[in-house]
């Protein structure tokens, strides 16, 4: 069972990821709507897997990712964002994320991305 945390300021996206079918091996242990909150929740819940949006209030994904990588060294981080700005996404990834999923996404895409992320 993989412990999963969802970071997105949109409740639609948060709930959508939670509700995606076929994710029997994942349990959502926490969610957050901005980077600051994410760091706090991650510290408490130590997720194995974090999905994170880039543009969020208070602290955006780019700044939160290196801190999250520090707080949960073993966690895999998936950037989930619209493909508006490739450069930003690449910068976010190079700060410690492991994969990128383009919004909007289908269930299959999300499922495949999560499986890919936790595979070795």
């Amino acid at each position: 069972m993989k412990r999963m945390m969802i970071v997105d300021d949109s409740t639609v996206i948060r709930r959508r990821i939670e509700r995606t079918h076929g994710l029997d091996n994942y349990v959502v242990v926490g969610s957050a709507s901005d980077g600051l909150q994410a760091v706090e929740v991650a510290r408490q819940r130590t997720p194995d897997l974090i999905t994170i949006d880039l543009t969020m209030p208070n602290m955006d994904g780019i700044d939160a990712i290196p801190i999250l990588a520090e707080v949960c060294p073993g966690a895999r981080i998936l950037v989930v964002s619209a493909l508006a700005d490739k450069a930003t996404a690449i910068r976010a990834l190079s700060r410690g994320a492991h994969g990128f999923l383009c919004k909007p996404f289908t269930d299959d895409e999300l499922r495949d991305a999560l499986h890919e992320l936790v595979s070795d």
Partner: peptide, 27 residues
């Protein structure tokens, strides 16, 4: 609202998958 959002997101996700770069689909 979440539920409608999910429905719309399903539609949008599939559309983006089906049309690739010909269409840009917003969230």
């Amino acid at each position: 609202c979440d539920l409608v959002g999910e429905i719309a997101n399903t539609i949008a996700g599939n559309a983006r998958k089906a049309f690739g770069s010909d269409f840009m689909i917003s969230v």
